[in-house]
Simulated scan of single mutants.
Amino acid sequence: MTPMKTQPTRKHSQSTSLHIAPIAYNQLAGSWRTEAMRSHATPRLLFITKGQGRITVAGMTHGYGPNNMIFLPAHVMYGYEAGPSVFGTMLTIPKAMADEWPEETVHLRLRDVHAQRQAAAMFEAIEHELQASQQTHSRAAHYHLGLMSVFFERQMNLSPARTATDRTEGTAARLVAAYTDLIERDYKTAQGVSDFAAALGVTPTHLTRCCNQTCGRSALSLLRDRITYEACLMLRDSAAPVSQIASDLGFRSAAYFTRSFQAKMGHTPSHFRKNGAGKSVRHH
């Protein structure tokens, strides 16, 4: 891949328009693209059609499998496994249509064959319309998305026993969800786990214990993971100097940022940028 420094500078942002993308295993792309904690400015809808794995949403880990639909509201932190057997689709929901979807995360398991076929057909219809360039096709894609929201709401009503990755699963889950909210809001401010724990009125030890209980990871791991993901995006999508990225992410020096990034990713920020945005993320 051409070194990033020769690429034109792109604004560091995430898509907020209607967009559809495949979910599929790609060893060369790097697991950080799926597994590392991240969030988006607009909602996402995942539809898994093949394979199984785990997804962590707001600090709560659940399994997923074929014919699962997972709705992720804006600004909710998540990451998921996408092994060799996994295939599916991720839909970006425009901000203007976000009100048509739930306010909390919802994980539906479609067991009815007719519903499974309906969901697949709706995704195919949206993809078909988005592949065309005419304005009428864009309008049609948005109308299909509106129908998708109706379908999703009906499935919620038919599946009261669905597994939810929201904030109703006990004290530990609620605390960790609140912690992930604080991370998402303040991860660029150089605050540590002790600062977040103090804001939540608990000790760092208790916070880490709860994180390990809900997702098998420490409080520090979740925080570092979110920062590292953002660093990866900034290194991939901009030509900003490493020193500027370090500053933007709240690091006191470029050297400290480099050591932290290398400990997480296995190589330096400069190496990551020059070699196709990396191939792995080490979870600590």
Rank of each mutant, 00 (worst) to 15 (best):
A132Q: 09
A74K: 08
R117W: 06
L110V: 14
T92Y: 09
G83R: 13
L158I: 07
R162T: 04
V86T: 15
A98T: 07
E81M: 04
V106E: 02
A161H: 08
E129D: 12
L147F: 08
M156E: 10
T136Q: 11
V106T: 08
M122W: 02
G83M: 10
M122D: 05
A74I: 00
R117K: 14
A141V: 07
A121P: 01
P160T: 05
A120E: 04
A140Y: 03
F123L: 09
R154W: 05
L145E: 05
S133Y: 04
E124M: 15
R154A: 11
H75D: 09
T105Y: 00
Q118G: 15
T136H: 09
R111T: 14
D112G: 13
A115G: 08
V150Y: 06
V113D: 10
G83Q: 13
G83W: 07
A140L: 09
P73W: 04
L158Y: 07
L72F: 06
A96T: 14
L147C: 15
F123T: 10
A82L: 04
I93T: 13
A121W: 04
A164C: 03
E153H: 12
A74W: 00
Q134G: 09
A141M: 10
A164M: 02
G146Q: 12
A74H: 05
W101P: 01
S159T: 12
F151E: 03
L130P: 09
A82K: 01
H107N: 11
Q118W: 05
Q135G: 04
A98M: 04
Q131G: 15
Y78H: 15
A96N: 13
M90C: 15
G88N: 03
D166M: 00
I126A: 12
I93M: 13
S149L: 10
H137I: 04
M97G: 01
Q118I: 01
E103N: 14
M156Y: 06
Y143Q: 14
Q131C: 14
E100K: 14
A161F: 03
A120N: 02
A132S: 10
A82E: 06
D112P: 09
R167D: 03
G83C: 12
A141I: 06
F151T: 12
S133H: 07
V113A: 11
F152A: 02
A125F: 03
D112F: 04
T92R: 13
V106M: 06
R162M: 05
R111I: 10
F123Q: 05
S85Q: 15
E153L: 09
E153K: 15
M90P: 07
H128G: 00
H114C: 11
R139T: 13
A161Q: 12
A96V: 12
H137A: 14
L91E: 00
S149P: 03
H114K: 11
D99I: 10
R109H: 11
